[in-house]
């Protein structure tokens, strides 16, 4: 089974296999990041801009703002969760309140589906 991922409703949420899995409005701790000058960005997710899959990870670039310094923009790729077994299709979301490291993609990845 292919894993279907996309953002919907103006980027309000990440859909994985037609189920709403990750929503905007959470705060994410981002470390080793270029988004702002803070050592750790306290990032408010306001909209999912781009979604991709780097098996088994489901990744996204997210628009929002660091609520510590006020810098706003779009993050590099963040792992939003995993689909370990594409046949089973179960999505395991990451916990936004733990610390995340955004990554620049080393290859082009815009698979709407993988």
């Amino acid at each position: 089974m292919t894993t279907s991922v996309h953002q919907l409703d103006d980027g309000a949420w990440l859909s994985v296999n037609d189920s709403r899995e990750v929503n905007v409005s959470d705060l994410w701790w981002l470390a080793r990041q270029d988004f702002c000058d803070c050592e750790m960005a306290d990032f408010l997710a306001e909209g999912f801009v781009e979604i991709g899959v780097d098996h088994p990870d489901v990744e996204g670039r997210v628009a929002g703002q660091c609520i510590a310094c006020g810098e706003s923009g779009v993050t590099d790729w963040l792992t939003l969760g995993r689909v370990v077994d594409p046949d089973e299709g179960e999505f395991y979301a990451v916990d936004p309140t733990s610390v995340h490291v955004p990554e620049r993609r080393r290859r082009l990845a815009r698979p709407a589906e993988s």
Binding site: L8, W13, S15, N17, D18, S19, N23
Partner: peptide
């Protein structure tokens, strides 16, 4: 169909229906 939820909810908007939040 479960795998068509997103497509149908997008289309339902044309008839004024918007699936409520999670």
């Amino acid at each position: 169909p479960d795998e068509e939820h997103d497509a149908w909810f997008e289309r339902f908007k044309w008839w004024g229906l918007y699936h409520q939040r999670k």
